[in-house]
Simulated scan of single mutants.
Amino acid sequence: MTGPLSGVTVLDFSRVLAAPLATQVLAELGATVIKVERPGSGDETRGFEPRLPHGESAYFFAFNRGKKSVTLDLKDPRGQALARKLAEHADVFVENFLPGTLDRLGLGYADLAAGNPGLVYVSATGFGQTGPDRDRKGYDTVFQALSGVMAMTGEPDGPPSKTGIPVADLTSGLWVVIAVLSGLAGRAASGRGRHLDVSMMDVQLSLHALNAARLFALGEDPVRTGTEHPGRVPSAAFQAGDGAWLHISGSDQHWGPLCTVLGLDDLAADPALRGNSGRVEQRARVMKALRGAIAQHDRDPLVKELRAADVPVGAVRSVREALADPHAVARGVVGEFTHPSEGTFPALRTPLRETAGEAPVPGVPPLLGADTDDVLAELGLAAAEIDDLRTDGVIR
């Protein structure tokens, strides 16, 4: 089935995780994505662990499916000229170099827009195109630290903790997708492209919407609360009697049914606890009672009983358990692709589908430079010219 972005050509000059995730999403939604890599080594994640039996990187596989790979030495004027020529035929240009780097190579927005006024140019950098930190390099866990995410992750009596996923990279990648799509929509209306600035630091700060609301309204700087919600009780993970964990997140309408299932008649009868504000005020009392009651039950039967009572609850699963869940299986969350050297390999599908169709099929991650000759030939280069570029190391 043709994807909704069929006919859109994306030049991907990005590396590592955030922006490559974005261009992978675009590829699996139907865009033609041409990933431009360094000759010989390519995207550095090609060497990241975990490695597969024939040397390919599962890390690279996770964020580079469905793309074409072209090698160009951007330090060589001929490589720069070819990159500009590619941009003349592209709809979108995505890059994550430090600000000013591509300008010095003649590949900045002003240079490329002169030859292609409709180009949507997205710069995804650590700290954005402006500001005192614009030249600072960015790393996921450093963003978690600087943004306040790390300070409020973990148990109240424990040290700061990173999140279980690279949240700064992943959320920034999704904002790169938003930037591309908004740029294309704007071009459809105005006929012109634009330069869009995605700052990973800005993205992390934007995730504090609720935390900032408490800060702005109460002057309260959020702190670590473990799995508990600062403004709602109950909303936390609890350990059952068999040692397994479950998470409950209830509102006022769930309080009575929760107490009934757990046999907490005294709490249910207390009018001060029927509203969330009262439960927040008496958080210690409520949580102690809930922990004690839940510890008298095995997890899975209790989860089943709470779900039957319409109480929002979920077992705390491992990644393996979550991906093997019957609902995830029925939705086809895990697909697969066949790689030319590593064979069949599982992949998480891009989680967007039409109601009348299936989720996008996982694309195949490209071998380094696999499409260089074909792409350059489409630009009009003769075979002898391509051979000369290879001999000189401009491509490989």
Rank of each mutant, 00 (worst) to 15 (best):
residue 347 A to Y: 04
residue 336 E to Q: 10
residue 353 R to C: 03
residue 325 D to E: 11
residue 315 A to R: 04
residue 267 L to V: 03
residue 271 P to E: 11
residue 333 V to P: 08
residue 359 A to Y: 07
residue 282 Q to V: 00
residue 350 T to N: 04
residue 368 L to D: 00
residue 305 E to F: 06
residue 375 V to A: 11
residue 266 D to S: 15
residue 288 K to E: 13
residue 270 D to A: 06
residue 350 T to E: 04
residue 328 A to R: 03
residue 251 S to A: 14
residue 345 F to I: 09
residue 372 T to F: 01
residue 353 R to K: 12
residue 378 E to N: 07
residue 270 D to R: 07
residue 291 R to M: 12
residue 328 A to S: 13
residue 380 G to W: 10
residue 319 V to W: 06
residue 365 P to H: 00
residue 267 L to P: 06
residue 264 L to W: 11
residue 370 A to I: 00
residue 318 S to Q: 07
residue 271 P to Y: 08
residue 263 G to Y: 10
residue 274 R to Q: 14
residue 306 L to A: 06
residue 340 P to R: 08
residue 338 T to D: 15
residue 339 H to R: 11
residue 370 A to Y: 00
residue 260 T to C: 13
residue 369 G to W: 04
residue 280 V to D: 07
residue 331 R to G: 03
residue 257 P to T: 02
residue 368 L to P: 02
residue 252 D to Y: 02
residue 322 A to K: 04
residue 254 H to G: 13
residue 257 P to Y: 05
residue 338 T to P: 10
residue 362 P to M: 02
residue 365 P to K: 00
residue 360 P to R: 08
residue 308 A to S: 12
residue 381 L to G: 11
residue 278 G to N: 08
residue 260 T to R: 15
residue 382 A to L: 15
residue 273 L to A: 08
residue 372 T to N: 01
residue 341 S to V: 14
residue 262 L to Q: 04
residue 308 A to N: 06
residue 373 D to H: 14
residue 353 R to H: 05
residue 338 T to I: 09
residue 300 D to L: 07
residue 268 A to V: 11
residue 360 P to A: 04
residue 378 E to D: 14
residue 313 V to G: 08
residue 266 D to A: 15
residue 299 R to S: 03
residue 313 V to D: 09
residue 331 R to E: 10
residue 355 T to N: 14
residue 307 R to I: 05
residue 325 D to R: 01
residue 379 L to Q: 15
residue 331 R to Y: 05
residue 348 L to K: 01
residue 348 L to V: 12
residue 309 A to Q: 04
residue 351 P to V: 01
residue 280 V to H: 05
residue 274 R to F: 06
residue 316 V to P: 05
residue 292 G to R: 01
residue 358 E to I: 06
residue 380 G to F: 11
residue 258 L to C: 13
residue 294 I to K: 04
residue 377 A to D: 03
residue 264 L to P: 11
residue 343 G to C: 13
residue 350 T to G: 05
residue 261 V to R: 11
residue 357 G to L: 14
residue 318 S to I: 08
residue 371 D to W: 03
residue 282 Q to D: 12
residue 302 L to T: 01
residue 299 R to C: 09
residue 375 V to C: 13
residue 299 R to M: 06
residue 309 A to T: 02
residue 371 D to F: 04
residue 268 A to N: 15
residue 256 G to K: 15
residue 287 M to E: 15
residue 338 T to L: 05
residue 271 P to I: 12
residue 329 V to Y: 07
residue 376 L to C: 02
